[in-house]
Computed example of a mutant assay.
Amino acid sequence: MNHNRTLLTAAAQGDTETVRTALAAGADPEARDGHRRTPLLLAALNDHVPAAAELVGAGADPDAQDDRSDSAWLVTGVTGSVAMMRTLLPAGPDLKVTNRFGGIALIPASERGHVDYVRAVLRETDIDVDHVNRLGWTALLEAVILGDGGRAHQEIVELLITAGATPDLPDGDGVTPLEHAERRGFTEIAGLLRAVR
């Protein structure tokens, strides 16, 4: 019986009991599937918190990256799962590990409008609020450029500013978040950015 394969499948399905059994039988918490995803990454992708907790308890690495440069920690920013983020924190994730776009977990969370996640990750970690990805964008720029200007993105802009984001840090072309907000007609966000100048 292939304990590693059993572990990978159980983690992806959120079958906590089988995760526990496979680990006890000697399965490697760092086993990889065909895309180099670990059991912990599969659990995080599918937001299976109890399964992830078992894996963290077994010493699974929250920073192990797959063939797309995703890690369990990084995908919490994509899914916006505060519960998963908190489950992974005791494993000591490296907050500077970047995804294939050169971004940290805060950036996709800001872009996708995950208000609770952004609030929690800013409050509970010392994540770099001004990290710049390969596109030349910070979390603040992503919230403005890729957001819809609605309530969730307004709250995220507020949270980022409160956490010390540099409000006038421009993108690679020298365009500031305020200029982007004005171009897109995001009056509320433009107002928030003007207030901190």
Rank of each mutant, 00 (worst) to 15 (best):
A190F: 06
T16P: 01
T76S: 05
I189C: 09
D168S: 13
A152I: 00
T76L: 08
W137N: 15
E124A: 14
G92C: 05
A24S: 13
A143K: 03
W137K: 08
L135Y: 10
V121F: 09
R184F: 12
Y117Q: 06
L40D: 11
L88H: 04
A72H: 09
L169S: 12
A27K: 10
Q65N: 00
V196Q: 14
R151S: 11
S69T: 10
L146T: 01
T87D: 02
T166V: 12
A109H: 09
T87R: 13
M1Q: 07
R151N: 04
A58E: 12
H3V: 07
T76K: 12
V175R: 13
D116A: 15
L159R: 11
H153P: 10
A105Q: 05
A31Y: 04
D28L: 07
D126L: 01
A165L: 09
D66L: 13
P90G: 08
L55S: 07
V132Q: 13
A64H: 08
D33W: 11
I145S: 02
A143H: 04
L135W: 03
L42Y: 03
A25S: 15
L40G: 06
N2C: 00
F186I: 04
P50I: 04
M84I: 05
A31Q: 07
Q154H: 04
L106A: 10
I107L: 15
A10P: 01
F186H: 10
P167D: 07
L193S: 00
L178D: 01
V121D: 05
L41S: 07
D173M: 13
T21K: 15
E155F: 00
A91M: 07
D148M: 02
T87G: 08
